[in-house]
Amino acid sequence: MSTDAKTTWTELLKKRETVALFLVLGMALALLVRSGNFFLDPSNLDSLQAGIAPKAIIAIGMMVLLISGMFDLSVGSVMGFSGVVTAICMTKGVPMPIAILAGLGTGLVFGLVNGLLIAIARVNPLIATIGTMYIARGLSEVLLVRETREGLTELDPTFIWLGAGKFLGLYHMFWVMIILIVLAQLFLRKAYPGRQLYYVGGNREAAGLLGMNVTRIRLLAYCFSGFMAALAGILDTTRSEMANRYMGQGVEMKVIVACLIGGGSIAGGKGSAVGALLGVTFMSLLNNSFTLWEVGKWQNAVLGMVLVSVVVSDGYLTLRKQRALGKA
């Protein structure tokens, strides 16, 4: 790192996080200019918070995986399933803390299954997590088999307060997210296990030769991702005050796109927690613009377009880097 002010600035500008920050600011500005009144409406800001917090929590887990060169498509289904498990436990009369632990445990189990399949059995991460995605989705359908479309709605007010209560104008779940982002950022930047993730993602063989237990690191990363998905699912249940089969649908792609925008790479070895938050914020603002500008039907098409362009640019940047190193 150079201490020269000029180089630092250009380096900062080259960072993907900075690009993501400008995207967020640009999107927010566009929303303010075009429909400021609706955008700044308290209920809109509330729904924006509630949209960002669970996705950002999942994105931390996803970023950890992306950094170590993996990813997880089951997060959306696991999120929904954990919410359903927690809600069902509570309606069956299980005390709230135990119900929440059951939900978190569910996520952990799915993370462990993913980890076992991918880190130990070495199954292709995409296929394995697509498989667990369908399994989690199927299981929550089994649990909800006699429920209506709304699903379980009779939840304990204390439980709802846990995530959707407010402190200084922000939802509790938003505070949880902020704390987790800060901790994750510190962990990834400063702690040795955090740095190990980058080594594993950057060059698996070298990391193995340096004596790192690549299998264990990957297994733990998947467990972490499953746990975060479960946490997000429970928090999302508190805010929407219901647990149903639609929760978490399509979230996995949104989170992956957000992480790629925020500086992650499918090739691994890159990314940060702050980047994950910026990416998720951008995606949520984009989503908000669809609602405010009433162009809802284009939503998925634009999401696909964004994903394609992000994947292409990610691939292009990786290829250019490899060419510069003389590897391709």
């Binding site: 998925n300 696909g304 394609v308």
Partner: peptide, 10 residues
């Protein structure tokens, strides 16, 4: 997967 989302959107 990106193309899949795009086409489903269309």
């Amino acid at each position: 997967i990106g193309m899949m989302l795009l086409m489903l959107g269309l």
